[in-house]
Amino acid sequence: MIISRTPLRVSFVGGGSDLPAFTRQHAGAVLSMSIKKYVYLSMHEYFENRGCILKYSEIEKPRTTDEIQHRIIRQVFHDLQIDRVDFNSSADVPAGTGMGSSSAFTVGLLNLCYAYRGEFVSRAKLAELACEIEIEKLGEPIGKQDQYGCALGGVNFLEFHTDGTVSHESVPLTAEQRHQMEQRLLLFYLGGTRSASNLLAVQSRNIVEDPHVTANLQAMVEQAHRLRGDLAADVDNLGLYLHDGWLRKKALSAGVSNEVVERAYEKALAAGATGGKLLGAGGSGFLLVYAPGDTRNEVIDALSDYQLHLVQLDTSGSSIIYSD
């Protein structure tokens, strides 16, 4: 039995600048943090002498790899020649809620399959391979921030270059600064799930067709560059960056926000939060809020209609947590 554990991520600023429609012409940048919310995948030898059993939100019993309905599993199993396995998937939060769960699944599955084959692959390489699977082979209209944010662990500054490569740098924070971030960042589940692919496809078209969207993304890239230093100088700078980034993100397409999100966000600001954003491509899912100083309890009370999730930093990235 082998078990992989891969963290989900929250992005602070720069989201959208990793989309190919933008990075083909301009360098993108995102500052993100992996958190202690995980995708768990397990695998061991299948009892039957042919085929697999796959248990995720569905149950499959394909006799060959080509019969697998789950596109990511089918591609990874095909590429790594995985067969006769009993595979299980579970996660701390639902898919489609804005924390990169699909890419965390891909990264974790690659890590699991390589470990099953007795091979070690670095976290950065897992992220690169996950991008290849999702974007190049499966044609998903997504960027590369989720794969790296979930694979690496920690707080990272990610750059997306016009040649398709990605560079990454850990943001240096003291133990006290990390504690402050964990205390002042709050996650509220507003409900619902959505297809990130559909929303990102719209945003990609807007990048191509509307120069104002491109200019907005360039400003968001500059935010990511500045926040890298300003976060290390004073964690409370994060709230202001989140607020400005959220206003810019809403300008990318009409589907990013809605009335439910806006009401919740206004309540948070009125209670003392200095900023926040809806995670992921938009529409539904988790609202991330920054509540500095003694405003934490007031913000929690103001958003008591929504399920609260505390934020804890993950520093391990995608890991094999059990092998026997």
Rank of each mutant, 00 (worst) to 15 (best):
V155Q: 02
H161D: 06
D163N: 13
E132T: 11
T214Q: 14
V155M: 04
L138W: 05
C131I: 13
Y189Q: 09
M181V: 15
T214F: 07
E128S: 01
T162S: 09
D146R: 03
N156V: 07
E176F: 09
Q180A: 09
Q183A: 15
Q183W: 12
K137A: 07
G139I: 13
L138C: 09
T174W: 13
G164S: 10
E209L: 10
Q145S: 08
Q218S: 14
A215P: 04
V202N: 01
N198H: 11
E176H: 11
A127K: 08
R184L: 03
H212C: 08
G143H: 00
Q183R: 15
V171L: 09
T162D: 07
L217D: 07
V155F: 02
N216M: 13
C150K: 00
H179I: 14
V208R: 06
L152V: 07
V155K: 03
T214N: 06
N198V: 13
Y189D: 06
G154R: 10
P141D: 10
V202H: 06
N216R: 11
L173P: 00
T193D: 09
V208T: 15
I133D: 03
Q203W: 01
C131M: 08
N156E: 11
L186T: 12
Q147T: 05
I133C: 08
H212N: 12
I142M: 08
L158Y: 00
R194F: 07
F188M: 04
D163W: 00
V208S: 11
I142R: 02
L173V: 14
G164C: 08
C131L: 03
A175H: 14
L187C: 13
E140P: 00
A219K: 10
P172Y: 06
E176T: 15
G164N: 10
V166K: 01
S170P: 10
D146F: 00
G143C: 08
A219L: 14
H168F: 13
E176S: 12
N198M: 02
L126I: 00
K137F: 13
Q147G: 02
E182Y: 13
G192H: 14
R194K: 15
D146L: 01
A130I: 11
Q203K: 02
T165H: 07
E132F: 06
E182M: 11
V155D: 04
A130G: 04
Q180S: 11
Q180N: 10
E136P: 06
E209C: 03
D163R: 05
D210H: 12
V166E: 00
P141Y: 05
T193N: 04
A151F: 02
Q218Y: 08
Y148N: 05
I133E: 04
M181K: 04
N206K: 13
I135E: 02
L152P: 02
Q177C: 05
A219Q: 15
Y189G: 01
R184A: 06
L173K: 11
E128I: 01
G191R: 12
S197K: 13
T193Y: 07
Y189V: 09
A130T: 13
E209P: 07
E128M: 05
L129W: 07
H212Y: 09
V208C: 02
G191F: 14
S195Q: 10
R205P: 01
K137C: 01
G164Q: 12
C150G: 02
D163S: 00
A127V: 09
N156K: 05
Q145M: 13
H161K: 15
S197M: 04
I133T: 11
